[in-house]
Nucleic acid binder design. Structure first.
Lengths: 225, 225
DNA sequence: CCCCGGCCTCAAGAACGCGTAAAAGCCGCC
DNA sequence: GGCGGCTTTTACGCGTTCTTGAGGCCGGGG
């Protein structure tokens, strides 16, 4: 879950943000002054910080500097000051974005999404799907089991990739055949039986009693995590 | 030098930006419509894009999507529309920032600096990829092995560069052929066999049993570190 | 009880993709 | 013109992968 640190000394703003962010599935932390904000940030490692500049103890730029000293967490500044000098100062101190109050919640949320998206891109978090007996790395196209790399043929990988991109969900035979063998072979369900047998031999602890590559008779297949 | 692509159909805006940016040491490219903007971006690889939304040919969102398809270049959107729906749409399409016209030049420049700073942070560090038997220096386009520099032909370097920019990742045959030989030759997979044999002779300790330039049969190649 | 559809397993030939070598073509340069 | 470096093309042997068919298992329905 994405976590957001909201820093503002006006309780009603913090409250409004907490409600909106929580409702959209964010994990919300809060702080009401600069010093505690820095402490919470160190402890909670939020994915993004929403920072009001008018704090009682520290100047906004100091808070930004305090965060930038050890982290590249995206910072969105909130402020009532509309003059460009304030914006320039905050942005050059290391802020990622500057929103003036009063602000539209839609816009703030969109800017928040943009900031989070960038933050994730920097981490370069590989899309990895993990079961109790093997690991699928979709970025580098590798499957590992007990630390060893398992070699998959192109067809095998095609099937695993589709299942891994839909973890836990049922994928129909038709969809698998269509995406791996093409539209001309959507009825060759025997292909699937042969290849799922091979995959189970390679990936399941007990191929005769698969726990992750599950057949749903008459429907399709599912990657159980 | 930092390069900026300015896209706008109003010449006076382009001119104003060009003057201000050039004076501050930026390398400025320009485009007056969406299609040429995408072309210039591919050719010039700018460090940041300033994009007006009201272009004559393409919708702004399409331009953003066209860039995001292959690149994470920071995009700053300029627009006369102040409603939050437009902002949300552009930001969610992949823009990094949204500035409404008329804008203050100081503020735009500060947002530009913030965007560039993030872009550099993402690229991060020295462009050097190191394996146990050779070193690829992407900045100076050189490969070293046992301290000696290894001479590569342009085609050989093209392949090594792509692999080195995706260390550990599987790169498809199509992508390699497309980027080195162009879209007309995406089926000449024999080229790859010939050139990878050459590269292994030059870079691998035991060319018959490569440890770094790995073939994934039927799928592509991988630079294993 | 038997039949039938769907599934799993096994095996063998065909087709494919890979590595290698070497020849042939194509510059630019002396 | 001749030379050298680079790229493209051709040819062949070999191992892997895909396809296909046959047989057996299981559960539900007639």
């Amino acid at each position: 879950m994405t976590s957001v640190l909201v820093v503002d000394d006006e309780p009603q703003i913090v409250r409004a943000l907490r409600i909106n962010l929580s409702a959209r599935g964010y994990d919300v932390m809060t702080a009401y002054d600069g010093k505690s904000a820095l402490g919470v940030a160190v402890a909670g490692k939020p994915d993004v910080v929403v920072l009001d500049l008018g704090l009682p103890d520290l100047d906004g730029v100091e808070v930004i500097a305090g965060l930038r000293g050890w982290s590249a967490i995206p910072i969105i500044v909130l402020s009532a000051r509309t003059d460009s000098a304030a914006k320039v100062e905050a942005l050059d101190a290391g802020a990622d974005d500057y929103v003036t109050k009063p602000f539209g919640m839609d816009e703030l949320l969109a800017r928040l999404r943009a900031a989070v998206r960038r933050g994730l891109a920097r981490d370069g978090g590989d899309p990895i799907v993990e079961t109790s007996s093997f690991i699928v790395d979709l970025a580098v196209k590798k499957v590992r089991r007990d630390g060893h790399e398992i070699h998959l043929t192109p067809t095998e990988w095609g099937l695993v990739e589709i299942l891994a991109r839909n973890p836990g969900r049922l994928v129909s035979q038709k969809q698998l055949l269509q995406e791996v063998w093409g539209p001309m072979h959507v009825n060759e369900s025997q292909y699937l039986r042969v290849y799922f047998a091979q995959l189970r031999r390679k990936l399941e602890a007990d191929p005769a009693h698969p726990r992750h590559l599950i057949t749903e008779p008459g429907m399709g297949y599912r990657l159980e995590l």
